[in-house]
Design a protein around this nucleic acid. Sequence first.
DNA 1: TAGATTGTTAATCGATTAACAATC
DNA 2: TAGATTGTTAATCGATTAACAATC
Lengths: 204, 204
Amino acid sequence: MKKISEAVVRRLPIYLRFLNELHVRNIQTVSSRDFGEKLGMNPAQIRKDLNYFGEFGKKGIGYDVPYLIEKIQQILKLDQTNHVALVGAGNLGHALCNYNIYLKSNMKITAVFDDFPEKIGSQINNLIVQPMNELTETVQSQKIRIGIITVPAIEAQNVADAFVKAGIEAILNFAPKIIKVPPEIKVHHADFTTELHSLAYYLD
Amino acid sequence: MKKISEAVVRRLPIYLRFLNELHVRNIQTVSSRDFGEKLGMNPAQIRKDLNYFGEFGKKGIGYDVPYLIEKIQQILKLDQTNHVALVGAGNLGHALCNYNIYLKSNMKITAVFDDFPEKIGSQINNLIVQPMNELTETVQSQKIRIGIITVPAIEAQNVADAFVKAGIEAILNFAPKIIKVPPEIKVHHADFTTELHSLAYYLD
DNA sequence: TAGATTGTTAATCGATTAACAATC
DNA sequence: TAGATTGTTAATCGATTAACAATC
């Protein structure tokens, strides 16, 4: 298979979300033109993106919504339940845990860790906050493959190292700090402070 | 001035954060090579990015850290205090309000809104949650120019519309929904569900 | 001076968009 | 059949990187 660029992969979840909205509204078919209009994207881009993975459309007709949902879910590996570990039981960690419902059942935070003595043993929803020294064992026994970092910047690299050692394959880092990991581990940064700072540039 | 691409603007806060780290460690000068190594970027890119805004370096020497911090802060308009309004006093909204300390004093959430009756009047740090019908007046009286959306997806567009009507210039949207605003308003999406979904693609 | 590093042009690389034959 | 829309190539656009003269 050709190498798929990260830009393409990042658009797939947006397509999926849009398709789910159509599905809820019982819309059976969608064209790349509809698609582009609603998402503010170029129709050719949407056709090209989807075509990296197969011929999902019908000429003259468009794309079948339920079929395309199924296909994108397969591509993104969202047709299986993905277990997620979160480190950092602060405000942001709490907020993300409570978001579980929004993530549907295919992404689930199943373990939470923190090394603050006051946090360990406390409960978030139905999860009990565990100490960091239990990370590797839990990751392996629960088949967790994705890790979320919601600790302060100064701790982020340590947590990333612990994730790597535990065998995590992908990391979503909310700490305002670039973390370094081996090339086979995928990292996304979700740092809202840099987002906010770059927004300020556009103020008049 | 030439048009600066968004990619460049998004890197400036990362440069700024790195420079602040150097400053704390009393490092006076930095070269684009050091820079690139620490941030995992190409040195030429860093020189080119900075050079869009002026000649901040010295040939043979590098960049003076405090001077470059000052310059980037000016470019990003972070040399003034920017007032921010947040709509959606849920878990995520709370978390972001408590993050204020991390944002230094140049970005400050100064008003919080929600339309849930149980939330109105409740307190987050030293802020009292206000009803949405007070948005425009507060935005104008407090000279708020940036808005944060932390409501459910279904409410996101309504809040965006209200922000636009109130005269907000830039929006950071955490809701998993693309919002549409007039072209003169700048929007960044900080949607962790799409981040997480695209990460799953890279699982083996 | 010699070594280092910027500023900046030119070359490369990659991503987006336009266009259209194929075909439902 | 006529109209619509995909799949896909070619053209365009934009961003990154290499290279090096200028100069501290």
